[in-house]
Each structure stands twice: as C-alpha cells, then as structure tokens.
Design a protein around this nucleic acid. Structure first.
Length: 646
DNA sequence: GCCAATAGCCAC
DNA sequence: AAACGTGGCTATTGGC
C-alpha cells in the first residue's frame, strides 16, 4: 500500500514548490479577511466570448454596505451601453478592496472584462480572490453547487426573488418580441429586459447568499481542515482563466469543408432512408431522427426482432441495436437498405452537428472552451461551449482535424500512460501488476493471460498485433468495467470469460481487498479521499462507485497538480509556453516555433511537470509527449531525455 | 411559448 | 429497485 502519511512532509518533487506553497496558503482560506467585497455580475448570456456582456454589477462589503450599478442594453443588438461614469465608480469601489469574493468568480471576472473592467490587473488580485463555488466543491463534492440551491439549503433563503424575476422576464419578452426584437433561447439570457425585479435579485445574490455563504464555508473549512484543498482549487483559477483566454485555433477552412461534406452525406442518406420508409407506408413527414417514428417502422411495420430496451422500457433504436438488426436481415432486404442508410445518415448528422457547434462558437479563428473545476463529482474538469473533451477521434469521423496550433506555433500534446489502471495497481500494492508497469509490460496483457491462458494459446491471435486480438480487447474493457464498479455478471460479460471477476480477485488478493475496503470506507464515512487527500462524497445508495471515485478522483488531482507544475516551470515560461486544453489525462500546450533544441526543452519540461505529482506519490507516472504542427489528429513522436527522480 | 424528460452519442 | 464511472450537446416529444 502507498504510505499516504509520508506525504505529510509536503515536500515538492523536482524542485517545484506548489505543494509547499499551498500549505503556506491554508491560513488564507480558513479565515475571513478583515476587509472584503462580495461581487456579482448579471450578463446578457453565458457565452462571454461570443458577445455576451455584463450589464449589472452588485456588491456588498464586510460591513454590509451595498452597491448596485446597471447599464442600459440595446434590445435589438443586445449590446450593453457602457456609461463611463458608472464604470469609473465601479472601478473605484472594487479597487479599494484587496479581497474579492464571488460565486463562480472566473465567470464574473471575464464578464467584467467585456465592459472594460480588468480585475486581473489589480495588484495581487488572485491572492485576494475567494470563490464560494470552489469552497462548495471542497466541502461536498457531490451536491448541487448552484448559488440558489446552496443558499436555500444552508441559509434557508427562499427563491422568491428569482421566481418574481423569471415571471417579469417572460412578460417582458412578449413585449420585446412585438417590437420585432429577437429573444434569447433561454429566459435567463433575457434578464436584462426586467425592471426592478432584476435589481432586487442581483442584490439578494450578494447580500443574502454569497456573503453569508462565504463566512459559513470559511468556518467549515477551518473546522474540517480542508483549507489545503481550497487553496489548491483557488491556485488553479488564474491558470484556467488564462487557458480559456488563449483558446484553441480552429482550422476554419477545413471545418467548413468537412461540415459541408458531412451535411451532404447526411442529406443524401437521409433522403434514401426517407424514401424507403414512405414506400413502406410511413407518412410523408417521416423523420428518421425521431426514435419514436423509427420504432413504429422497425418493430411495427417491419416486425424486426426487439433487441435491448431503453431506460424507460421502450425498444431501443441505438446504433448497436440497428447494427444487430442489419446483420439479421441482410443488406439487400428493404429493411436492410433502410438501416444502412439510416446508420450512415445518423452518423453524418452527428458530425455535422458537432462541426456546426464549433463553427458557431468560433471567434476570429479561435475557440474558447470553458473548463469547469467544479463540474464533476471527482475533481476532473468538465468542459463546455464547446465541450473540448469529447471531440471525436473515431477513424470515420476524425473531428479533431479541425483543431490545431496557431500559425508558427506547435503543440506539445502529452497524455499519461494508462493512468487510472496504474494508480489502481499502486494503491492496492499489487506487486505483480506494479512490476508489469515498471518493466513496461502491458498490464492488460498480464490479466488477459490469467483469464485466457498464455498468449500462444489464444484462438484469434493476430500475430502482428496482439493488441487487436479479442482476448486483449475484451480484457482491457473488463479492466475498465472493474474500475467503474461493475458487478460480477457485468464484469464477466465484459471480460468475455465466465467467472473472470472471481478469478481476478483470487489471483490478485490485494486488489480484491482494496476494492472491498474502499467501498466499506465509503459506506462508513459517506466519502472517500483521493491519494492527495481531496474528499469526495459518495452517494450513499451507490457505494459500489466508491472505487471509481477514488481512482478517477486521484487521476483528476494528478492533472490539477500537473497544471500547477506547468505554470511554475521556469523553462516553460522562458519559452512562452501556455496550456490550451486538457482532456482528463491529456494536456495540450502551445509554444512558438523556434528550433528543434527548444522543442526538446519544451517536451522535457512538459514531461517533468506532468510526472511531478507521481514523484510526490512515489508512483512513476509516465507520459510520452508528442508534437503537433498541423492538426490534433497528427501527433508526431518526440524523443525526450528527461527522467523523473524517485 | 416554456420546460423537462427522453434518447442518442461523443470523450476519457 | 438496480447495481458500469465521469461529463456535454442536440433533437424530439408532450404536458402545462
């Protein structure tokens, strides 16, 4: 087992000071500053890179003195009409405090930038920055972190103000529409149309909600000794803020060409499917994107055999089911022709939808995904507008091709090698698996041989590439299922070997006992702690997920520390490198193109930064950086020379 | 017109 | 009751 107590030394690996620095800062986050200002903004929408702006600012200070400023909004263009005097006033008040409290401050700081107020320029702004959203996640990672929900739950503040505002906005929208102005998709984005209801609501948010919540959380964090974790989340905010500002370059020409290509394919195949459906007796307005109408055709008209069911008991029409049906009825039958056109058009629609979304969020060739520190139950980031963490890598839909480094720049794209499985093996202390990791042998293969016999006896062994053999692939999936908390039957089915789960537990005894202890702990305490001590509450009715929380949570922590290391690495800052995105175990950073020697320094530095959390844990986390010149689908290998010291 | 539920599918 | 985790986005559908 890893001796987590050893870590209390708070030493920092490879010369990085972030662990020590966070310890120093614990005091900041477990005490209420003597003077502070709570700030909130109201905006014309959430997409601040797409023209949405702040139109109102509310604030209250430690003494209870409150302010409210509001700007006019042009209802036609949705542009905020900025009043210079008010702006000056806001700046004067805000800059007279060294501590600023927000709920989701990253958003408010960005919102204020849209009207020309840049808080990040204030002296030591990020040091005085406090965010109740971050406190909320540290104190209870699983609960809803929305300001209204928290205030209702902990302060018993009603949502009357929001309901009144909502009603007023719906009314105002109708009037606005009559004037010929378009309304936003969501009611919240039209809050600027309301009158006094908005003013009241905005003040409530700071006076009755954020300010008292802040004081409450500081107490909780002090008494439950969570300040270190709060410090870590706060330390990340400026890095994430800069990462979002930087954004990813979109290869706009490729995007448009690909979008058109997928669109054409979607239309063509959709038309074929439609024609067949109508000739089979479906109405002329038959919509192949409707699962209900599909069910009527496939299971009522064609009488195809029912496969699996959806959560609510309907006959599933997902791709897996349709492929099975296609295998069953053959490609030449009417139903078969329909199904193959449908599958292709659906896939193409999907690609087209993604690309259309990217296009709509692209500004001057750059896209700025949000990375949300509190968006998951497990310390992972979530990403939105667009979600940069689910860009298709499929060979028949390689959408990563539309993302790439800026001109005269390259990316260092590095991901951890089998991060979660590795953390699992080391956390268990399972020597044989650890040995496999340290010798570079495939752990999936070790387990595959346990379940299927020696590799030489595998039935469908592909000699050139055993990783493509079904034995290997099934085992890999099974290992993931294990980490995800699968039960016996699901695990066995995924491994494709009956009794697989039990055999693994018998062979790897420490793995079995670690799984059980983790679940027991979660049942007893209501939470598990990652290897770095971040507390993750586990829903009581789903204790089986505890292992996943532990592993995924530890992996999430690894990435967060890696990002801290990246930002304090002097070689990287000398090269002007900056992070542009992360996909859970992958970190993408951008550097200006100079020469090969500098590129090697960049790759080595990224490797050093990303491996440093492993040094701290005593777990060798290996990463292999690659270089990207043109687009995200084409990494080229770079030989690094850096070796982490344990 | 508004909203929530449902289904489907992309990533790790 | 069910038991494979964490997310985000779009389209359809039906209730109010």
């Amino acid at each position: 087992m890893v001796d987590f107590k050893k870590m209390s030394k708070r030493t920092s690996p490879n010369g990085y000071s972030y662990f020590r620095e966070l310890t120093f800062r614990e005091d900041y986050y477990s005490h209420v500053p003597t003077r502070y200002l709570v700030v909130d903004t109201e905006t014309t929408g959430t997409k601040l890179f797409q023209g949405c702006q702040a139109f109102a600012v509310s604030a209250v200070d430690h003494k209870g003195e409150a302010w409210f400023w509001r700007f006019k909004v042009n209802a036609k263009t949705r542009n905020v009409i900025v009043d210079r005097d008010k702006l000056k006033d806001i700046e004067e008040v805000v800059s007279s405090y060294s501590h600023h409290v927000f709920h989701h401050g990253k958003f408010d700081v960005r919102a204020l930038q849209t009207i020309g107020i840049d808080l990040t320029k204030l002296q030591d702004f990020w040091l005085g920055f406090r965010d109740t959203l971050l406190y909320s996640h540290v104190c209870d990672s699983t609960e809803d972190h929305g300001l209204k929900d928290l205030a209702k739950k902990y302060l018993n503040v009603s949502n009357d103000d929001e309901e009144a505002l909502h009603a007023a906005v719906i009314k105002a929208r109708r009037a606005n529409k009559k004037l010929g102005n378009s309304t936003a998709e969501k009611v919240q984005e039209d809050y600027f149309l309301a009158g006094a209801e908005l003013d009241k609501y905005a003040l409530c948010d700071v006076v009755d909600r954020t300010e008292p919540l802040f004081r409450m959380y500081v107490d909780v964090v002090r008494s439950e000794k969570l300040a270190y974790q709060v410090a870590r989340e706060h330390a990340l905010v400026p890095l994430v803020f800069d990462m979002e500002s930087k954004g990813l370059r979109i290869r706009t020409k490729t995007l448009e060409l690909e979008r058109k290509r997928y669109e054409r394919l979607a239309m063509e195949e959709g038309a074929k499917a439609h024609k067949i459906a109508v000739s089979s007796g479906m109405p002329k307005d038959f919509n192949p994107r409707s699962s209900q109408q599909l069910q009527a055709l496939l299971f009522d008209k064609y009488k195809l055999p029912v496969g699996k069911f959806t959560a609510s008991g309907a006959n599933s029409t997902d791709a897996e089911t349709l492929k099975d049906l296609l295998d069953g009825c053959g490609e030449t039958s009417k139903a078969g022709k329909f199904l193959s056109s449908l599958l292709l058009s659906r896939k193409s629609y999907k690609a087209c939808d993604y690309l259309t979304e990217y296009q709509s969020l692209c500004v001057n060739g750059i896209i700025h995904p949000s990375f949300n520190q509190t968006g998951t139950n497990t310390t992972r980031f979530s990403s939105s507008d667009p979600n940069a963490q689910n860009v298709s890598t499929k060979s028949d839909m390689p959408l990563r091709i539309v993302f790439g480094p800026r001109l005269d720049h390259y990316w260092i794209d590095a991901d951890y090698d089998n991060l979660e499985m590795r953390l699992f093996a080391y956390a268990c202390g399972e020597e044989e698996l650890i040995k496999a990791f340290e010798s570079g042998e495939s752990v999936h293969r070790v387990i595959a041989e346990e379940l299927n016999g020696p590799i030489s006896t595998w039935k469908e062994l592909n000699k050139d590439d055993w990783k493509k053999s079904p034995e290997y692939k099934r085992t890999k999936n099974g290992n993931f299922a294990l980490i995800y908390g699968a039960g016996i039957s699901r695990a066995d089915a995924t491994y494709g070997v009956s009794g697989a789960f039990d055999r693994i537990r018998k062979r790897f005894k420490k793995l079995a006992s670690f799984m059980q202890t983790t679940i027991d702990k979660a049942k007893a305490n209501g939470y598990v702690q990652t290897m770095f001590g971040y507390r993750l509450s586990v829903p009581q009715d789903r204790a089986y997920a505890a292992l996943n929380y532990f592993i995924q949570g530890t992996a999430g922590c690894v990435m967060k520390y890696a990002m801290l290391a990246f930002s304090e690495d002097t070689d990287i800052s000398k090269l002007g490198g900056s992070m542009v995105g992360t996909v859970h175990d992958e970190l993408i950073s951008e550097f200006k193109h100079e020469d090969e020697q500098q590129q090697l320094i960049a790759a080595n530095s990224v490797k050093r930064a990303m491996e440093s959390p492993g040094v701290r844990l005593g777990i060798p986390l290996t990463i292999s950086p690659s270089v990207i010149y043109r687009d995200w689908t084409k990494p080229s290998e770079i030989k690094t020379t850096f070796v982490s010291q344990f």
